[in-house]
């Protein structure tokens, strides 16, 4: 069979990609980032190979859009370093996960990327390494360091 109707792609992956956007660009810009991502995906969709990992493809687009967004607004030397700074002061930070987003935003960019793309997006470390322009092993280490750091931060705040 060919590609499923894009409506099914939105239903199946939309919420995960929104959560990835929140974690990567912060709650304030997450919805714009989601819209950019899905419009670009919609335009390119007919050319996607039917056996592709659709979630990985969407997250890759979201990552590139996030990088573009940061490059447009700041002087960012490297994609990996271009993940934005903390957005915890945003008004929308009242959502239930705000402590988590705050702690994520405080991580070094590579650790944050590794944690988000592996744990939130569900990508394999090989894919995470590809996105962050590093090796699979380095992505795995960055995620482990990030998780340890989150655990320490949130534990101190009595969250975990």
């Amino acid at each position: 069979m060919g590609l499923p109707a894009f409506e099914l792609v939105v239903a199946e992956h939309g919420p995960v990609v929104l959560r990835v956007c929140r974690a990567v660009v912060g709650p304030h810009d997450a919805e714009d980032a989601w819209s950019e991502t899905f419009l670009a995906a919609f335009a390119a969709y007919p050319r996607l190979r039917p056996d592709s990992d659709v979630r990985g493809w969407l997250v890759t687009i979201a990552h590139r859009k996030a990088v573009d967004r940061i490059r447009a607004t700041a002087r960012a030397p490297m994609p990996v370093d271009a993940l934005p700074e903390s957005t915890a002061s945003d008004a929308e930070a009242v959502e239930p996960d705000s402590e988590l987003w705050e702690a994520l935003a405080a991580l070094p960019p590579k650790q944050r990327g590794a944690v988000v793309y592996h744990y939130v997006a569900g990508l394999r470390y090989a894919e995470v390494g590809g996105l962050l322009e590093t090796s699979e092993a380095a992505a795995r280490r960055a995620a482990a360091d990030g998780i340890a750091s989150l655990r320490s931060t949130l534990g101190r705040k009595g969250q975990l």
């Binding site: 919420p15 995960v16 929104l18 959560r19 239930p96 939130v120 997006a121 569900g122």
Partner: peptide, 16 residues
């Protein structure tokens, strides 16, 4: 971190 599906609220997805 993993509970992405559960965390997206329906109203936001509908407007997106």
């Amino acid at each position: 971190l993993c509970s992405a599906e559960a965390a997206a609220d329906g109203g936001t997805m509908a407007s997106l």
